Amino acid sequence: MNDTSRHHDDAAARAAGSPLVRDFGLLIRSATRLERRIDSALRRECGMSHTMLEVLIRLCRRPGEEVSQRQLADDLTLTSSGTTRLIDRMEEAGLVRRVPSPGDRRVALVEPTAEGRTAFLGAAAVHARVVEEYFVQPLTADDYARLTGALGRIDRALREAD
Rank of each mutant, 00 (worst) to 15 (best):
R105H: 07
M52H: 13
V99N: 05
A41S: 13
P102C: 12
V55S: 01
L151M: 14
R85Q: 11
T118H: 11
T51R: 12
A13I: 07
A119W: 00
R58K: 07
T51A: 06
E66H: 14
A93W: 00
R105Q: 08
D155R: 08
P100S: 13
H7Y: 14
D10Q: 10
M90P: 03
G103H: 12
D75K: 03
A150N: 09
L151S: 05
A119L: 09
E45K: 11
I154N: 00
I87Q: 05
P63S: 01
L147G: 02
E115I: 06
A141K: 09
S80I: 07
T84E: 11
V107N: 03
R62W: 01
R97S: 08
R6H: 08
A119D: 01
A123K: 03
V67Y: 03
A161S: 13
R62A: 04
A13F: 07
L26P: 00
T79W: 07
R105E: 10
A15R: 10
V21A: 14
R37E: 15
T4W: 10
S49T: 15
G25A: 11
R146D: 15
P19W: 11
V55F: 04
R44F: 12
V110F: 02
E45D: 15
E132V: 00
F135M: 07
G25R: 09
L121V: 07
P19R: 14
S68E: 06
S49D: 06
A15Y: 08
Q71T: 12
L34Q: 15
A124N: 08
A157C: 02
P63N: 02
E35W: 06
Q137W: 04
V110E: 02
E111C: 06
V136Q: 05
R117H: 03
A125R: 15
L59D: 02
V130H: 02
A114R: 15
Y144R: 12
M1V: 14
R89L: 09
A141Y: 04
A114P: 00
A31S: 12
G17Y: 03
G103V: 05
D104S: 11
L78Q: 08
Q69M: 13
P138L: 08
S30E: 10
Y144H: 12
T113A: 08
E35H: 13
A123C: 07
T118K: 14
A93K: 13
D39K: 07
R97Q: 14
S40T: 15
V21K: 11
P63H: 06
T77G: 00
R58I: 03
R85W: 07
C46P: 03
V67G: 01
G25T: 13
D162G: 13
H127F: 13
I28L: 12
G47R: 04
M52E: 15
M48L: 15
V96Y: 00
G82Y: 06
P102M: 11
R146M: 09
A114G: 10
F135E: 11
D9R: 15
G17P: 02
R159M: 02
D142Q: 14
S80C: 07
D3E: 15
G122W: 01
R97K: 14
G64W: 07
L95I: 05
G25N: 11
S68A: 08
R6V: 13
N2A: 12
R6D: 10
A11V: 03
M90E: 05
V130P: 01
D155G: 00
G116M: 05
A114I: 08
F24G: 01
E132Y: 10
E45P: 02
E92P: 00
F135T: 00
L72R: 01
